[in-house]
């Protein structure tokens, strides 16, 4: 059986919020080491990989591997029944068809139990190769969200060009064009590690969906290499992450 307790429901809400625009349904793979999720969006252009190691939880027990197929919108509806500072415990028996969620208020005066029906979902895991990114950029997650939002006004596509001088985001369309360049800052909120310059083009609406994870982390890590998917990674506290991968666009 699985039993996993988080000190605050807010964290779980943020995680589900970061997933549910890209994925409507997905499977949580629970094992002794923690909870993982991997899924493509419906159009198979992007992929989300999430990991919450057991250290993320106040209490964690998983005797046998369990796969929990979830409808994320339904899960969010249940989470909305909790206060943000409630502790949440999720549990499921082996071969369960329901997920139990228990919310406990800070002083333990109120306990609320919910059950969520589980789904039988096809599991379609992809092997993500270890990639040596030619450019790795760290920047404030709010800055990345702002750039993606602003560039979506101009075009469906954004060109990301990274070199030792900076990372440049460009978009152009009928309205006009936009170019935003960030260079490395002395205070370290933007950092660039560049082995060789890379320029790639991406669909901005996926980038905007990824920024739903902004509230999870102050910093976002971006990995770029020629002709491989873009990596956008948000850490979750000290022992977890959400990684989004986005296939580049190529010239017709």
């Amino acid at each position: 059986m699985l039993e996993a307790r988080l000190g605050s429901t807010t964290l779980l809400k943020k995680i589900v919020d970061a997933l549910k625009e890209i994925l409507s349904q997905s499977t949580l793979d629970c094992s002794a080491s923690g909870i993982q999720l991997q899924a493509m969006d419906n159009s198979h252009v992007s992929l989300v990989a999430m990991s919450l190691r057991r250290e993320c939880f106040e209490r964690y027990r998983c005797d046998r591997n369990v796969a929990l197929g979830l409808d994320l919108k339904s899960l969010m509806k249940v989470l909305k029944c909790a206060s943000g500072d409630d502790a949440v415990t999720i549990s499921a028996a082996d071969k369960a068809d329901k997920l139990q969620l228990r919310f406990e208020s800070a002083g333990n005066e109120r306990t609320a139990d919910y059950e969520l029906r589980l789904l039988n979902l096809e599991q379609d895991h992809l092997a993500i190769p270890e990639t040596d990114y030619a450019c790795v950029v760290h920047m404030p997650s709010t800055e990345f969200a702002r750039i993606c939002r602003d560039l979506a006004t101009f075009s469906e596509s954004v060109v990301i060009a990274c070199s030792k001088d900076g990372i440049k985001f460009s978009a152009s369309g009928e309205l006009g064009s936009a170019n935003i360049t960030l260079s490395e800052t002395s205070k370290g909120d933007v950092s660039l590690q560049v082995e060789e310059p890379v320029t790639l083009c991406f669909a901005v609406r996926y980038l905007n969906s990824f920024t739903r994870a902004t509230s999870l982390a102050d910093k976002v890590k971006i990995g770029l290499a020629a002709d491989v998917p873009l990596l956008v990674e948000y850490p979750i506290e000290d022992h977890g992450y959400i990684r989004y991968y986005l296939a580049p666009k190529v010239d017709d």
Binding site: M40, S43, H44, V45, S46, L47, D124, H125, L126, A127, I128, P129, A203, V228, P229, Y245, L246, A247, P248, K249, V250, D251, D252
Partner: peptide
């Protein structure tokens, strides 16, 4: 042209 993510990451 938009490529699919599964042209980069293959099914296990």
């Amino acid at each position: 042209m938009q490529r699919g993510i599964d042209t980069f990451f293959h099914r296990m």
